[in-house]
Design a binder for these strands. Structure first.
Lengths: 251, 251
DNA sequence: CGTCGGATTGAAGATACTCAACATGAGTGG
DNA sequence: CCACTCATGTTGAGTATCTTCAATCCGACG
């Protein structure tokens, strides 16, 4: 099963046919990007949907003064530019933070999915709404929490999202960012990112080495992050019958 | 024309029939809320869509320590809970900040809109995607801009959104918030909100009196806010043929 | 071995927070 | 009409968080 399918199954159970339909999306001709490459540039018109199948990318807003702010991360299974159906151009950059592969899906393919199959329609809407919820939480973070908590929240959220797509075995997942990148994500300075990170390390909550995050104490991390399980809306993972991905199981 | 219709016309030109279809949504039985009332509570299951027809509300995330963060404002024409189609429950509160009226639209009505009429479908998607873009910008604000700039951005964005629905004549619009509310929106303390606001006043950029914002110098406000016109995606208002709502016209 | 990007540490200064006092203005009740 | 109350706005002072600038350290790599 592809990451996209695994992710959308968090919304509703899909039929075998639907699963295959979704899986096929990952097989469209892929394009490869190196770390630092711009996958989609602000202002660009897009004609094909980019589905991340491998790697790690970020939505980045660049300011005139050179500062930049990462507003979201993209991991395998994430669609970069669903918005092109209704918006003319990208209003931000998407940048590969590590070698990244994207399947290029013709828009028509998604259009068909959106009209044909209602349960898939629902799944794609779910994905969009979850993105909204994630952004709302990011705003709370940056408005009302201090730097170490923001980092903790970031680490914990990514842990959950990687689990959703089956890539967080051992509470470990890839995060190919320099501390400057972390700082961009948390809205703090690189120096402060370093110091805040040391705090989390000192408390033995999380380790970050060579682009790999290891969550040493998920419960503790979740606590200081002020993380609410609800907002990622993992309907099915909350079921006792489907325990393999549940956040609380691996504490 | 209702605010919702005016707003969605920023996306594409609508036929007379579509316009009437949308206008009808505002005529569903309304519910009234006083300032401070909770329109929708976190965790609540929703069975009817709330369309703000009058007043002013906010999406609010409350933290355990009592702090709260406003993550978005709702003005007439905004749909509060489109997300219920795919998410089980609200993941945040919606609170009236002034006397507010909401039309309660049966979910089926929206479902029909979403499947029947493709251009309306597109318009609703546009609305959702714009919400996403607004949140991305909010994150940039809180991560990378200082308090006065954040307030400036807030004031300017609301100016544009009120213009979209024809409610910002004279560069003036309602903002029924105490300075504490402003602080919640900008992610700063009430005291700091006061001081930052005095700065904007001193520069004669904006006035805020008795719940009414008056933008004295739109160009200057836009400049210090670092506001990018693009992200609200007002396709049609950027056309020279439709000048009445254009942001730059009234400077 | 030297270089280079990233990580780390120190120190000074800016932005923002908290606590606290005081002002203002709309209501309310005497 | 005045006194009182209460919410909100304003201002001051001390402190905390965070930023910036700068120096140093470290590991990867030629």
């Amino acid at each position: 099963m592809t990451p996209l399918t695994m992710k959308l199954e968090q919304c509703t159970a899909l039929s075998e046919a639907e699963r295959r339909r979704l899986d096929r999306l990952s097989e469209f001709p892929a394009k490869h990007f190196d770390a630092g490459d711009v996958i989609l540039a602000e202002g660009q018109r897009v004609d094909r949907i980019h589905l991340v199948t491998d790697g790690f990318a970020a939505r980045v807003k660049s300011l005139p003064d050179g500062l930049r702010q990462i507003v979201a991360f993209m991991i395998p299974g994430d669609l970069c530019d669903l918005e092109v159906f209704v918006l003319e151009r990208m209003d931000h950059d998407i940048i590969a933070m590590a070698p990244t592969r994207c399947a290029l899906i013709p828009m028509q393919e998604i259009t068909e999915l959106l009209t044909e199959v209602t349960t898939l329609t629902k799944a794609l809407w779910w994905s969009t709404m979850t993105d909204l919820a994630v952004l709302r939480n990011r705003i709370v973070d940056q408005g009302r929490r201090e730097a170490p908590e923001r980092l903790a929240h970031l680490f914990y959220e990514l842990l959950i999202r990687y689990r959703m797509i089956g890539m967080a075995a051992d509470n470990s997942y890839p995060l190919p960012l320099s501390q400057t990148g972390l700082a961009d994500a948390a809205g703090i300075s690189p120096v402060h990112a370093n110091r805040s990170l040391s705090l989390l390390r000192a408390e033995r909550l999380v380790e970050l080495d060579r682009g790999v995050v290891t969550v040493l104490n998920p419960a503790g991390l979740k606590r200081i992050a002020g993380f609410e399980a609800g907002y990622l809306h993992m309907a099915r993972t909350e079921h006792p019958t489907n325990v393999s991905h549940r956040a609380e199981d691996l504490i």
